[in-house]
Amino acid sequence: MRKVVLAAVVLCFAATDSFSQILKPVTWQFGAKKINNNEAVVFIKATIEEGWHIYSQHLEEGGPIKTSFTFTPSADYVLVGKPAEPKPKTKYEDVFSMDVGYFDKEVVFQQKIKLKKGATTVKGAVEFMACDATQCLPPDEVEFAIAVK
């Protein structure tokens, strides 16, 4: 009898484990390109799984968590303006009672920098929230270190 109970407990944990997969519908890639000796552009690309989306940086208060960037201060460069993004798709979301801008499939954000020396590493983090038609995942943060040569 004890073996039967033990087997049932093991099967319950195995079944529960297979349903508790960690969802990671967004992957990030980072790169940089020098424009000239004094300027460069940092590229931050999100690849988003089918059926999922992330939100624009430009959302009104009371909506979902918008995508945001934090850059670690450095003596090697200064940021020029704010991160640029392409025009997002827009839709009305009942849960927030507002129109929201979002991206699906992929999006590339760009941050221009002015270099104070020839090569540097741009460090920081991107915070975002991924949603599909039935759920939103908790906000996530991904750190980056992008070589500019």
Rank of each mutant, 00 (worst) to 15 (best):
F30T: 04
I113G: 06
V9W: 12
L23W: 05
W28H: 12
K105Q: 08
V41C: 06
A40F: 08
V5N: 04
G124L: 06
K105R: 02
W52R: 07
K123F: 05
M1I: 03
G31H: 00
A8M: 13
I54W: 01
Q57S: 11
H58D: 05
G62I: 07
E93L: 15
A133D: 13
F13E: 10
R2D: 12
L137K: 10
Q110L: 08
V100H: 04
A14V: 13
N37C: 08
T134K: 13
P25R: 06
G62L: 12
K34T: 01
F43A: 13
L59M: 12
A145H: 02
S97T: 09
D17V: 08
I44S: 01
P138A: 15
E85S: 12
T120W: 09
W52L: 00
N37Y: 12
D140I: 07
E49D: 14
G124Q: 02
Q57C: 03
T120E: 06
K117R: 15
I146Q: 04
F43C: 04
E49Y: 01
V100C: 05
A119L: 11
A130Q: 06
N36D: 15
T27M: 01
Q111K: 03
G124M: 07
I54F: 12
D17C: 13
K114F: 09
V100D: 00
K66A: 15
C136P: 13
A145N: 12
F71I: 15
L115M: 14
F13V: 10
L137Q: 11
K117F: 14
F103S: 00
K114Y: 08
A133L: 10
V95A: 15
F43S: 14
A14I: 11
C131E: 14
V126D: 04
T72A: 02
Y102R: 04
V108Q: 10
I35S: 03
V42M: 05
F43I: 00
T47L: 15
E60G: 14
F144Y: 09
K66P: 09
V4M: 11
V107N: 05
V142D: 08
V5G: 05
C136Y: 11
Y77S: 02
K149S: 11
F71D: 04
K45H: 14
V148K: 04
K112D: 04
S74Q: 06
T27G: 09
L6G: 10
E85F: 02
F144K: 01
Y77D: 07
V122N: 00
A32F: 02
I65L: 14
P88M: 08
A84C: 05
V126F: 06
K105N: 11
I48A: 03
S18T: 11
G51M: 01
F19H: 08
V148L: 07
D76V: 10
V78Q: 09
F43M: 13
K34W: 06
T134R: 12
V100G: 05
K45Y: 07
E61S: 15
F103M: 00
K87P: 00
F19C: 10
G31K: 01
I54E: 10
G62Q: 08
V107R: 02
A46H: 09
S97F: 11
V126H: 03
Q29A: 14
K34V: 05
T70I: 09
F109P: 03
P83D: 01
A46R: 11
V122G: 02
V107I: 08
N38C: 06
K89E: 09
L137R: 12
E106G: 03
A84W: 02
Q110V: 01
K114D: 10
N37W: 09
